[in-house]
Every structure is written in structure tokens, then in C-alpha cells.
């Protein structure tokens, strides 16, 4: 794979409730690499993404990745603040990560400008998915982690994330957990996780 790895995982394993979700997961990714995590429901794809992001500690192994400010994360089950507007989300995330919010640009790009001042709790699932994508991309991350990125999106939304992915992969690494076969064409490598043991 990559000559200069942006992310390195060595022998990752996660045990939950006395069973191993996965064990011995090793990979390294550099700019342009898109790793697909494939496997049945419950095989640990989402957990592996969280381990790589640092949200969950692995039971075994280690991960080296960019600073969290340089990691973008979007997941179907990721929660947003229902009382805050999309603009406020983008401003909050930007201030915390020390980047320019560029809220209007991101909302226009994700076709969310009409909802800019609307409480996020009133947005549809697909609109929230677009906002999560904008939040993940806002800091121009070196590593982009995406959990079922196209699951809640309509055709227009899918086109947006595919375009965003193509743009991101020019400079960064990507890991996508997906069971959607349409997404598989973006992968440059894949790891198939099995049934938990």
C-alpha cells in the first residue's frame, strides 16, 4: 500500500461481552487509499472505525493516526444536537478544531442552505447525513472515516458524497464501512470481517 502511511493499524482486536468482534486486523493507508470494511451486521465494522478514530479503545493491538483535528468521521448512527442549526454545528466544529467554518460554502455544497437556520432535529435523515458529511470534511482531514455513508442518501445525496470522496482521496486516506455493493467500486483495498467468535 502507501509509501508514507497516514494511518497504521497493527494486530487490532476487540472483545465485547466475552466474544471477539475481530482480531488481528492490520493495515496501513496513505493518501489516495480507500479501505473498505465489509462484513455482515454485527461483525464489528462500525466498532473498528471507532477504534481507528480513538472513540473506542482496542482490546489488542495499536493504531497510529493523524491528530483528531485531522480526522473526519461520519456515521449513520452519529448524533447531532437537535436544538442547534446546521450553521451552528459547522461553527461549533470549526471553532473546536481551529479551522474556518465556511458554513455557507459547506451548506451550499451539501444543498442545505434553505435549512441553514432550522433546528437540526427537524431535518430529515438524509439532510442530517449531508450535514454529517459536511462536518467530516470541514477540516480537510487527512483521514476520513465513513460508516455506511450512502445508506440514508437519495440519488442527489449519493452524488454529493461520491464527489466529496473523489476530492478527498487526492490528498487523504479513507476507510469506509459498507455493505452497499455500489460503494465497493471506490475501494483500493478491503478487509472482510467475519461472524463474531
Amino acid at each position: 500500500m502507501a509509501l508514507t502511511p497516514l494511518v497504521q493499524a497493527t494486530g487490532l482486536g476487540k472483545e465485547l461481552g466475552g466474544r471477539w468482534l475481530f482480531r488481528g486486523v492490520t493495515f496501513e493507508l496513505g493518501a489516495g487509499d480507500v479501505l473498505l470494511l465489509i462484513g455482515p451486521n454485527g461483525s464489528g465494522k462500525s466498532t473498528l472505525l471507532k477504534v481507528v478514530s480513538g472513540l473506542v479503545a482496542p482490546t489488542l493491538g495499536s493504531v497510529t493516526r493523524p491528530d483528531l483535528n485531522r480526522v473526519g468521521f461520519t456515521a449513520l448512527d452519529q448524533s447531532l444536537y437537535s436544538a442547534l442549526t446546521p450553521t451552528e454545528h459547522l461553527e461549533l466544529a470549526a471553532q473546536l478544531r481551529g479551522v474556518e467554518p465556511e458554513a455557507d460554502m459547506w451548506l451550499r455544497r451539501m444543498q442545505l442552505l434553505p435549512q441553514a437556520r432550522q433546528a437540526t432535529g427537524t431535518l430529515s435523515t438524509g439532510q442530517r447525513a449531508r450535514l454529517k458529511l459536511a462536518l467530516a470534511l470541514q477540516a480537510r482531514p487527512d483521514l476520513l472515516l465513513m460508516d455506511e455513508p450512502s445508506a440514508a442518501l437519495d440519488d442527489a445525496g449519493r452524488a454529493l458524497w461520491q464527489e466529496a470522496l473523489q476530492e478527498h482521496r487526492q490528498a487523504g486516506a479513507t476507510i469506509i464501512a459498507t455493505n452497499d455493493k455500489e460503494d465497493h467500486r471506490f475501494g483500493t483495498c478491503a478487509i472482510t470481517l467475519g461472524e463474531p467468535k
Binding site: G54, P58, D67, Q95, L96
Partner: peptide, 15 residues
């Protein structure tokens, strides 16, 4: 996983 290498600052706290 390596711990996040951030430290709190005023603008973070304000936000």
C-alpha cells in the same frame, strides 16, 4: 489507540 493530542484552550472553552 494513541490518546488525542489536544489540550484545552480558551476559544475551545468559549465555543
Amino acid at each position: 489507540a494513541p490518546a488525542p493530542s489536544r489540550s484545552a484552550n480558551r476559544s475551545e472553552l468559549r465555543a
